[in-house]
Design a protein around this nucleic acid. Structure first.
Lengths: 333, 333
DNA sequence: CTGAAAGCGCTTACAG
DNA sequence: CTGAAAGCGCTTACAG
């Protein structure tokens, strides 16, 4: 079935039908409703291929994630896929698989991708200048989750505040000897937002960050375990530790257990995320709304796709995070 | 850039170029290599839209999953996406979000989907007869993971054997008072393969399944916890429990802890899957290769897509599972 | 083995 | 507000 069938049934030209279907201006209400009726009677849906070829849209958008296997990305992706689907878009999934080669290839292929999709939803991709440039050059509509200083709509959380909430919780419990498992990207020159939040909370209590109590940790359980082990073998004795994410906190829990330290009796532990396993493990944490971030960003992208004529200021939306006290944090004795 | 550019550069007609690019027969080697050279020099890639419209392929395949958020599906999806990408296909993700309405809509829209993709990779979808029919009618190439008795290539594991391995492990440890957290789909009339494996292992030891020791459990942590709690409050005293999947086992672990029962001292616990958290929690389990299943099925689908002329017998590939002893199973005292 | 021509189903100026 | 015509970039018979 083609647009021709709809044209015949509605008694109008395919050209008018085409316009009516896409709700373009300059179509009489009468024509509009006749077309809508005919189309729905026929169950007609325009061929994506034909419409694309003729200069229209592809009807699909790509979601690009550093990896598709982490709980964070799989939830964000599913939520985004839902809103995209509701707006009639197919979701093409592109995982960079945490590999530099895959990533490089993605950016090299961007121009080709641009002819297959209408927009890009980027999830937590740390862009270097060349990549940013390639993205801007490809002409696709964009939106992102968890990115900073990008020239398109973004949604995320206030990482500094989340870290502040976690740290403040520990401080409020009477702890003052705090360790931090800080993300790998952290360094003396470029503090991560979460580290900044940690430090700010200490500042407010007139405490200073002790260098011996900050240790780098990747985002995985193993990473957290290794970091915590290093902390313990250093001989420093924090009474509480703030891990930059829940999985790192899980690892810290393991290391603590391995060294016979009891949580929360000897040491309190808190993370950020509210990973699905955190409830199960009783981990105190600061929850971030993952599905909401994906859905919100997808909505922004859809809006952008619908009226791409109107240039607008890129917006940055920060969703609320929330402290969740469970069993790994306790008042200092 | 279009096929015309390649034609000019190679000094051949677009028609020959088209054939050469798709490696169709009846193209001289000389033409073939000239075209290949010109195309690579230009970085040419055919427009998916045009090629689709002209009766060719869409260059994309859809992966359909009951949900995209579980570790199993996100791993299978990522692995499949990798092999599809390597074969030049875009992956469109469709999550049924565990919802009947979404599922219904998917099947209703199948005909439209069929014009947007070349093939379907189905992950663990339990088909009713009508759905199977719709799938066969849509004319797409197909392959699946974890499905039974389907008229297309499938890859999975031998569930009965995996359950047998887990149960046999418990039995080998001297346990004979075994409980089972069996999947919800299990009933007296339709035993699940995993339950069958459990029963067969008992049979081989001349043991019988005690009805009081089998309890239904969904696949989630909560489900497992509820099921284990029921078992405990029933007053039955198994010395070992086999959970049909790791997450249910996690829940069982929680319930056991809540009732002051120590694992593995009082009770041994084993699951199936080797969930990413199982290592962390020390759960004994029977590992199944998840990424491999996704990748394998994707490969079968690609093969099918390449030579769709040759009709072939649907194959069913069962990948190996492997017992992993960790800390939740121990010899009966 | 190769090429000229028609056509896939839309959209986009351009007239009216 | 509406329609006739051209064209998007390929593939597919059909000749040669």
């Amino acid at each position: 079935m083609t647009i021709q069938d709809v044209a015949v049934l509605s008694g109008l030209s395919i050209c008018t039908v085409s316009r009516a279907l896409r709700k373009l201006p300059n179509v009489s209400e009468k024509a509009q409703s006749r077309v809508a009726e005919a189309a729905s009677k026929l169950g007609y849906k325009a061929s994506a291929a034909a419409s694309r070829l003729a200069g229209g849209n592809t009807g699909s958008v790509a979601i690009v994630a550093p990896t598709a296997t982490s709980w964070f990305f799989s939830q964000a992706v599913e939520a985004a896929e839902e809103v995209l689907g509701d707006s009639g878009y197919d979701t093409v999934l592109i995982s960079l698989r945490n590999k530099a080669t895959v990533r490089k290839q993605f950016f090299a292929d961007l121009e080709n991708l641009a002819q297959r999709v209408d927009g890009l939803l980027l999830l937590n991709i740390d862009l270097d200048p060349g990549e940013l440039e390639a993205l801007e050059a490809c002409g696709l509509a964009m939106a992102s989750v968890g990115m900073r200083n990008v020239p398109w709509d973004n949604v995320g959380i206030d990482d500094e505040h989340a870290a502040w909430q976690a740290t403040q919780h520990l401080l409020g419990l009477g702890h003052w000897n705090l360790a931090v498992l800080s993300s790998n990207e952290h360094s003396v020159v470029t503090e991560t937002p979460r580290f900044r939040g940690f430090r700010r909370a200490l500042d407010e209590h007139h405490l200073t960050v002790h260098p011996d109590l900050v240790v780098a940790s990747g985002p995985g359980i193993d990473d957290g375990r290794r970091a915590m082990t290093e902390l313990i073998t250093r001989g420093t004795k924090p009474t509480a530790v703030f891990a930059h994410c829940d999985e790192a906190a899980f690892g810290a829990l393991t290391a603590l257990r391995e060294y016979g330290l009891s949580v929360p009796k000897n040491v309190s532990v808190i993370g950020i995320d509210d990973h699905p396993m955190s409830w199960f493990l009783g981990l105190s944490t600061v929850a971030q709304p993952v599905a909401d971030q994906g859905a919100f960003a997808a909505n922004l992208l859809c809006e952008r796709l619908l009226n791409n004529e109107s240039p607008h200021q890129p917006s940055n939306h920060l969703l609320d995070t929330k402290l969740i006290e469970r069993k790994t944090t306790r008042h200092k004795r």
